[in-house]
Amino acid sequence: MATLKDIKRRIGSVKSTQQITKAMKMVAAAKLRKSQERLLDARPYAEGLANILSHVAAQTQPGINPLLEEREVKNICYLVISSDRGLCGSFNANVNRTAKTEIDSAKESKSVKSIVFGRKAFEFFSRREYEIEEKFINLFNDLEFKHAVDVSRLLQKLYVERKFDRIMIVYNRFKSAGTQVTTIEQLLPVKPVVVEIESQYQPVDFIFEPSAKEILDEIIPKNLNVQIWRTLLESSASEHGARMVAMDAATENAQEMIRGLTLKYNKARQAAITTEISEIVGGAEALQG
């Protein structure tokens, strides 16, 4: 049986673990709030751009921009967005597993490579010896718009050079602090967007300066930048949400464990006292007799 001392030591170690998980939970909550704000701040720009893009696209022929061009799909690239750090529940496992299933099924008929954003995805796919075109790791701590632009430039270059005929993205979409949805979307070629036009003015009346084609050439890469930026922020907010929930559960489990151990400790203590008393009583009786 465990001695009193042993149980006491275990209680101490569980308590200090609990302190860590509690602190991590609070840090995650603070970071979650920050990344949620960034997500909200990024939204008007993204919506505005999508809006203009739909106005312009409504008046131009498809195929006017190389990033719109549909080709026969032989080479696919998957951009997988994970986190850099662990201890966030099934966050990384979800996105990695979904991406792996997709890649494996695509591999049967096409050549597939991946670009990983986040250390966890890099470790997952490099350990399994998947072909990795490029990696972006340890950026989530100071995530900036220019990181999204870097990724976007690379993707555009790869697409225009015909290295890939389709580029997909796999990431965790932020639904609420407790819920993330693993999502797969097509980045390139750009799918023609249909946005309802809420304005009272007809889009036909637009004048373009310079031409519609040049405007399109401007907007499409910018729209891609913003789309990638949005997914990075979504993923980052999801990560902190997942970590908060995981650390909350861990803190609760630790509490449960402490309760059990305290009970065990008290029982053992009681047993020791009872034994002691009965020994004393037994000794006294022996002396009397």
């Binding site: 106005h55 009346d205 637009f206 004048i207 310079p210 405007i215 401007e218």
Partner: peptide, 16 residues
């Protein structure tokens, strides 16, 4: 292609 001014009532217009 250079600076331009916009006043209220401008015709719908998209510019880089």
């Amino acid at each position: 292609k250079g600076y331009f001014g916009v006043f209220p009532g401008h015709t719908p217009f998209v510019a880089a």
